[in-house]
Design a protein around this nucleic acid. Structure first.
Length: 573
RNA sequence: CGGAGCGUAGCUCAGCUUGGUAGAGCACCAGCUUUGGGAGCUGGCUGUCGCAGGUUCAAAUCCUGUCGCUCCGACCA
């Protein structure tokens, strides 16, 4: 490709709309342009890089035995009602109406469609296992799209769905995808690592997310350097000890705490109750019902864990207006001591760390008063003990005891073992060897393709611009003649090298713009081509061409060996 | 959805406090010079000042509403 024949609108200054580096570079290098919030056009260079990522995914999916299909972006709402996700995923579902006022759902994923297809077309164990994948546009009505392609309303996703005869077979399919994902991200030049993850609204048994470490990531990952443990903070646990048990103290005792409504205030004079001897009482509305959630004073509730472990579909903190009639006191004076509860119907979920704790302090459900000498076992009727707290850095790893660390990361892929959740809803059954009807066991697997592309940029850049890995670069080689007059030696040589490299199947772009060298060099660095060839009078006089790897050292080679040298450099991966 | 900020040329922004002829740099076009890391000079093109309403002799500027964008939070398959 000749530079002047395509469109590469580079920008000297980062547009005000971009905050994070990879987003700025996507815009400055002329890869994408915004059409609306969270909605982008891929310009020629951006599309080429996107296609490279897609091709890597295709090759690895095919290698893992998955088969490519293409499902519709507009889907009938009936199947979403059938799966139940019309309600549970309501907030992110885009819906449109046709001219006959019929509603359609814009697909955010495709479990419903593919399970319907499997139910109709797979009848025998002889047809299993099957793993269908597609690479297509997905829609999600994000409350807040941000960071360019990182969280968009419309984006490209690779989604795959496996069907197996048994749980064991499904685990094998899951493992295949897990391994394929590791290869995909490695081939994209990304340092991605798998972490244990929550399954969220999509449901299922267990899952892993593939994370790319980045300060701008929207996820926090807990990991251990002593062993292999790594988990999303929404899922992570630690080996932190339970609350120390003390001698069973005197009976529960109420004391006045005028104006004290925080853990911190109760920690101070004159009360001096350490946070780790306090019970934090939170009121949540879970699926429209109020519940009490207890964690230790120095712990934070993990809402994702709470929802996952109680099975709640929707949960939010209760408002003051809801709390006061319920408990007779304001937040800050709340407690779960059974004797003070107006209704014994309310469920009480307590964090495991509080199990067996005594000599604790908590609110008395009376403004201005707390209880001391509270025993979890004796004084509080706990409905269910659960792991509900958020892990913090430095806690001992549950597996090996080493201190845990936390870092931010970008989620680029997610693998789920689904079980039969969707098979049941859509009657995805097959006949086994004995002629018995059985449900297919499913898995589902997603890669944010456009997000992966941005993650590559987020990880590969310097002050001058993008540093693409060879595998994803829109062009692997940029030829920069410093004189573009068709009759000049530089341009003639440039065209010859261009033709020879192209004939060898190397992606190459020739910067034929009549610009000053500085402009061309700056743009080549900004866009980040892995190899740049400079052809100017200086080196021509010596019969040489300069080879400059992006971010590497410049070397001069004889003009007649340059094609060979470059071919060698770019075929490394 | 809560909080904050911002909408002026293709891009980055000034002008708004204190109302009075629409600005700069970059980009773009023409010419001359220049030519190994974002050149110089001369001339030129470019705007419903986000939109609607109001106040006023007069509104980019003040007021009200609205839409959009960005960030923080909540949310996140």
């Amino acid at each position: 490709m000749y530079w002047t024949k395509t469109l590469i609108p580079t920008l000297r200054e980062p547009p005000a709309e971009a905050e994070i580096l990879s987003h700025k570079l996507l815009l400055r290098a002329g890869l994408i342009r915004k059409v609306a919030g969270g909605v982008y056009t891929f310009l020629p260079l951006g599309l080429r890089a996107l296609h490279k990522v897609e091709q890597i995914i295709r090759e690895e999916m095919d290698r893992a035995g998955a088969i490519e299909v293409l499902m519709p972006a507009i889907q009938p709402p009936e199947i979403w009602q059938q799966s139940g996700r019309y309600e549970t995923a309501r907030d992110v579902l885009f819906k449109v109406k046709d001219s006959g006022n019929r509603e359609w759902v814009l697909s955010p994923t495709a479990e419903e469609v593919i399970t319907g297809t499997a139910a109709a077309e797979i009848n025998s164990y002889r047809q299993l296992p099957k793993n269908f994948y597609q690479i297509s546009v997905k829609f999600r009505d994000e409350i807040r799209p941000r960071f360019g392609l990182m969280r968009a309303r419309e984006f490209i996703m690779k989604d795959a769905y496996s069907f197996d005869v048994s749980d064991e077979a499904a685990t094998a399919s899951y493992q295949k995808m897990y391994d394929a994902y590791a290869r995909i991200f490695e081939r994209c030049g990304l340092k991605a690592f798998p972490v244990e993850a929550d399954t969220g609204v999509i449901g299922g048994k267990f899952s892993h997310e593939f994370m790319v470490p980045a300060e701008t990531g929207e996820n926090e990952v807990v990991f251990c350097e002593g062993c292999s443990y790594a988990a999303n903070i929404e899922k992570a646990t630690s080996g932190i000890p339970k609350t120390a048990t003390r001698e069973v103290g005197a009976a529960i005792e109420k004391f006045a705490t005028p104006g004290v409504v925080t853990i911190e205030a109760l920690n101070k004079e004159p009360y001096k109750v350490p946070a780790n001897r306090q019970i934090k009482t939170l009121i949540y509305i879970a699926d429209s019902k109020p519940v009490m959630v207890l964690v230790r004073g120095d712990d934070q509730l993990n809402e994702t864990k709470f929802m996952a472990k109680t099975g709640a579909v929707a949960a939010r903190p209760a408002t003051v207006e809801e709390i006061v009639p319920l408990l007779g006191a304001h937040p800050g004076s709340l407690g779960a001591v059974a004797a003070t509860l107006k209704s014994q119907d309310i469920s009480v979920f307590a964090d495991e760390r509080l199990r067996g704790a005594n000599d604790m302090t908590t609110g008395a459900n009376e403004d201005g008063f707390h209880f001391r000498n509270v025993s979890m076992e004796r004084d509080i009727k706990v409905t269910q003990w659960l792991d509900l707290r958020t892990v913090t850095a430095g806690e001992p790893c549950a597996k090996c005891g080493k201190p845990l660390k936390i870092r931010r990361a970008i989620e680029v892929g997610h693998v789920f073992k689904l079980g039969t959740k969707y098979s049941e809803k859509f009657n995805a059954e097959y006949l086994d060897e004995s002629g018995a009807r059985k449900l297919s066991v499913m898995g589902c697997y997603g890669i944010g393709v456009t997000r992966t592309l941005q993650a590559v940029i987020e990880q590969g850049n310097d002050k001058d611009g993008i540093i693409w890995p060879l595998s994803v670069a829109p062009y692997r080689v940029c030829i920069t003649p410093l004189n573009v007059d068709p009759n000049s030696e530089a341009m003639k040589l440039a065209e010859k090298i261009y033709a020879e490299l192209t004939a060898r199947g190397v992606d190459v772009i020739l910067d034929d713009r009549d610009e000053r060298p500085g402009v061309k060099f700056k743009d080549a660095d900004l866009v980040g081509f892995p190899i740049r060839l400079a052809i100017g009078e200086k080196s021509l006089a010596k019969g040489e061409v300069e080879i400059k790897p992006r971010g590497g050292a410049l070397q001069s080679v004889k003009a007649d060996t340059v094609v060979e040298a470059v071919t060698k450099l770019v075929s490394k991966s």
